[in-house]
Amino acid sequence: MRDHGPRTGRDGERPAVRGHGHGPGQHRRPAAVTDGDRPAAPDGHRAAVPDRDRPPLLERGPAHTRTAVPRRPDGAAGALTPAESFDALYAFCAPALVRQTYLLTGRRDLARESVERAFQQAWQRWPEVARDPDPAGWVRSAAYEWALSPWHRLRPHHRHPEPPPSDALDRTLMDTLLHLPPAYRRALVLYDGVGLGLPETAAETEASTRATVNRLAHAREAVAERLPELADPEVLHWRLVELASTERLRAAKPPVVRHAGERRARFWTRAAIAFTVALIGSTALTLHTAPRRYEPPVPPGETVQGVPPPVAPGPLSESERELRAKLRKQPQKGPERLLPQPR
C-alpha cells in the first residue's frame, strides 16, 4: 500500500512512497505530525496517536533517506494526451488502491469494482480531475466512498461472505477491521496504512482533527484488544501492508476501464434522452386530449315528484277470465285469421 497523491509534509517535502514488498525496510514513512498538531482528548490527556519521527522498526540500507516521488518535467505534462495521462495515473495508483480498498471491505471483487468505478468517474470528469492538485487523492476518495456504500448489502452477491485469508493472524486482523465502524476503519487505513497525516486524513474523511484522533484511538484499541502484538503503530502498519499484499489482487487494464466508462456514460446519456423524449411525448398527448373548455360534471339522479310508481298487474276479473277462455277456444276461427291457401 502506498499513498500516490502529491501531498506534502510539514517541512515542505513529499511523503515517502509505500512499497509493495512484504518487509518493513523498503521506504521511510511520511513526515511526523508533532504533538502541537494533536488536539487534546476530552479528558485532558493526549490521544493514543503515536509520533512518527522515529524510523521504522527494521530499516534497510545504510542511510535513512527520504524517498520522493519523481517529478515530471513541466513540458512533459503538456505533451501527453488525456488518454495517456489517465493511463499513467491508473498504472501508478490502481494496484495499491485495490489493496487498500480490500482492507476496507474484505471483498476482492468489490475492491476491484470500487477502483474501476472510481477511475471511470475520473475519466468522465477528466478535465476537472487533471487540474486537481491531488488527482490520486480524488480517485482514492471516490473508491473509498463506493466501497463503503451501505447499499452493497442489498445486492444478492454480497450477502454471502467471501473466503477469508488462509493465515490465522490475517483472518483475525481482517475480522477485527471489518467489525470496526466504517469511519474508524477508513481513518485507520488512511493514517496507519496509506500514511497520511492527521490533517489530510481528517480532510479526506470530512471530519475534524479531534474526531479523527478519537477514531484512530478507538480503532487501535480494538485492534490491540484482539491482537496485543499490534499495539505498536509501526508493527500495525507493516501488518496492514502484509495483509493487503498476501491476496492476488489485480486491476484491469487502463484501456478496459476507459472504454467501460465511456460505454456507461453513453448508456446513461441515451437513457436520459429516452426519458426526456417519453416525458415530452406524454405531455404533448395530454395537452392534445385534454378538454379545452370547462365541462360541468353530470349531476347525480334525483327523484321526480308527482309521478305514481308503476303497479304490477293484479288478479283478473270475471269478464277478463271469460274473454281469455273464449280466445283460447277459438284460436284459428274467424275471418281476420289469415291462412295460406293451396293452389
Rank of each mutant, 00 (worst) to 15 (best):
A88C: 06
A88P: 04
L89M: 15
Y90V: 02
Y90M: 02
A91P: 05
A91F: 06
A91K: 10
F92H: 12
F92T: 10
C93L: 13
A94V: 08
P95N: 09
P95T: 07
P95K: 05
L97S: 05
R99G: 12
R99H: 14
R99V: 09
Q100G: 10
T101G: 03
Y102H: 15
L103I: 04
L104F: 03
L104C: 04
T105I: 00
T105L: 01
T105H: 02
T105P: 01
T105D: 00
T105W: 02
R107K: 11
R107F: 12
D109P: 02
D109G: 06
D109C: 01
L110N: 10
A111G: 11
R112E: 15
R112T: 15
E113N: 09
E113R: 13
E113L: 15
E113A: 14
S114E: 10
S114A: 15
S114N: 07
V115N: 09
E116A: 15
E116P: 07
E116Y: 08
R117P: 04
R117H: 11
A118P: 01
A118C: 01
A118K: 00
F119W: 07
F119V: 05
F119S: 03
F119C: 01
Q120D: 08
Q120R: 13
A122K: 02
A122R: 00
A122N: 00
W123A: 11
Q124S: 09
R125T: 07
R125C: 03
W126E: 04
W126Y: 06
P127R: 14
E128C: 04
A130D: 15
A130E: 15
A130M: 12
A130R: 15
R131D: 15
R131L: 13
D132I: 01
D132E: 06
D132L: 00
P133W: 05
D134Q: 05
A136D: 03
A136S: 04
G137T: 05
V139W: 03
R140Y: 05
A142N: 12
A142H: 12
A142G: 13
A143S: 03
A143D: 01
A143Q: 03
A143G: 03
Y144R: 08
E145L: 09
A147V: 11
A147D: 10
A147P: 08
